[in-house]
């Protein structure tokens, strides 16, 4: 589903975490917040940092570095922002990504010029190289699926 379907163009926000660049559709972003105090949960996968209380909801915080198995920095001050995302098809379901920084906005037309590659990772729609650095275009639905996969 396009996040900007009327023009056929999808706008992505680039996120920076642990020397990696990721991109999420801007329409999935509810807000960008300063990092809240995270409560760790027992018996959960390592990529689930914990939960935070934002906008009157208990929201899981996901560390993409663990999902993509990039060596993660334990120090939370290195990723002081939370990007609050909503499920593309269920606005009542949210998750938060902890990131170091948010950088530029890019659109799919720009990306198409650069050349999109597919990725073996289920949470990634495409990979594109920007300035010789890979940029992972995240599949938000799959990210939410990942979250509910480990039902206890």
């Amino acid at each position: 589903m396009s996040s900007n379907s009327h023009s056929g163009k999808e706008i992505y926000q680039v996120l920076y975490l642990n020397h990696q660049h990721y991109a999420v559709p801007v329409q999935s972003i509810i807000s960008v917040l300063a990092l809240e105090k995270i409560l760790s949960l027992p018996d959960t996968p390592n990529w689930l940092t914990g939960v935070v209380h934002v906008r009157n909801a208990i929201v899981p915080v996901v560390n993409l570095s663990f999902i993509f198995e990039v060596d993660s920095l334990a120090d939370e001050s290195r990723h002081p922002l939370l990007v609050l995302l909503r499920h593309p098809h269920d606005s009542q379901r949210w998750l938060a990504l902890c990131v170091t920084d948010i950088t530029q906005l890019i659109d799919t037309e720009q990306l198409a010029e650069t050349g999109l590659r597919s990725s073996p990772h289920p949470c990634v729609k495409h990979v594109v190289d920007i300035d010789s650095q890979p940029l992972y275009l995240l599949d938000i639905s799959k990210l939410f699926e990942q979250l509910m996969k480990d039902q206890g």
Binding site: K37, L39, L41, P42, D43, T44, L48, V51, V52, H53, A57, I58, V59, P60, Q92, R93, W94, L95, L147, M148, D150, Q151, G152
Partner: peptide, 27 residues
Amino acid sequence: IKSLRPHYHHINGIKGIAILPEGDLAL
């Protein structure tokens, strides 16, 4: 007390998340 649902599934042994007066969370 708030549930982890609908954003996350239930965790065994944890009834919910308690919101402390200062706003911090506790299991």
